[in-house]
Amino acid sequence: MKRLISAALGLALMAAPALADWAPDGPISLWIGFGAGGETDTLGRLLASEMSETTGWDIVVENRPGGGGMAMFTQLSVAEADGQTLGMGVTMPVLVNLTVRPDEVPFTLDSFDYLGTVALAQVGIIAPADAPYDTLSELVTWSQENGGALVGFDARPQELLMRFVDAETGAGFRLVSMESSAEGLQNVLGGHVQAAFTAGVHIPSMEAGDVKMIASANAQRHSYAPDVSTVQEQGYDIFVDPWFYVAAPAGLPEDAATALADAMRAALDSETMTEVIERTMNTEPGDAGPAETREMLDAGLENAARLFAN
C-alpha cells in the first residue's frame, strides 16, 4: 500500500510540471466587478468553477461591486501582480469612465495585463410587435411626426448612440433611463415607451410575437435574429459592444500570464461553458487572447471617444 501511494505521489509530481510550469501559491481570487446574481457574477462563478476543475487550483470568487466595475478595477490596479488576484468586468463602463473623466480614474488600460474575453453582450433595440415602424430609420420618421418617441436605455453608451442618431436626423427622441434590460422590456410590453434597448431578455417575448427587434446595436447582427440589420447598416456609423473580460494587475510574470490565459481558454472552450454562454447570453464564448483583448480595448477607447464627441 505504502509503495502504491509513493508511486502515485511520484507520478503526480512528475505529471504536474508537464501540465503547467506555473502553479499558484495558494488560492486565486477572482474579483467580480458587480454584485451577486448579475450576468457578470453568474458567468464569473461558472468560469471559476470550470477553471478549478480543469487545473485543480482553488479559485475563490469575491464580489466587489461599485460603479459598473470601477471600484473593483481600482483595487485590482494596486493588487500584487502574482497571478493570484484576477478581476472580471465589462468593457463599456471602464471605457466610458476613461473617456469622460480620465483625471479622476486612478488607472489606465496600461494598469492591467489582460487574460482574454469571456463573452459579448448582444444589445438590441426592440419595439411592440404592432408598432407602425420596423426599423430604427422608420422609428426616426415616426418620432419626427409624433412629437418625439420615448426610448428606454439602461447604459450610458446606449443613450449616446441614440443622441448620435438624434443629432444626425433631428428625430427628437425622449430618452428614458431604465434600471435594466428587463425594465426596458416591461415598459415596451406595457406600452409606456415606443422602443427600448435590451440584452437578450426580450428573446422569449419576441418568439411569442409580443415584441419585435428593430435594430442590433452591436457591430454585428445577432445570431438569433440574422434578418435584423445593425444600427450601422441602417446608416448611422455607431455601435456599442460590451465585452465581458478578465484582467490581472500589470506586471504579471510571463509563465503565470501564459498559464492563466491557457487555463481560462481551456475552461471557455469546455462544453459546459459554451453551453452556459449560449443559454444565458445567446452567443459563443469570446475567443480573444491577451493581445487581442488589449487591442480590442484600445479600439473601444477610440469608439468611446467618438460616442462622446457629440
Binding site: E39, T42, P204, S205, A208, D210, R279, T280
Partner: peptide, 15 residues
Amino acid sequence: ISAFMIHGIQPGPLL
C-alpha cells in the same frame, strides 16, 4: 432567472 437560464430555460410568455 439566472438559475433557469443556466439550465437552458428562458422565462417568458411562452414558458
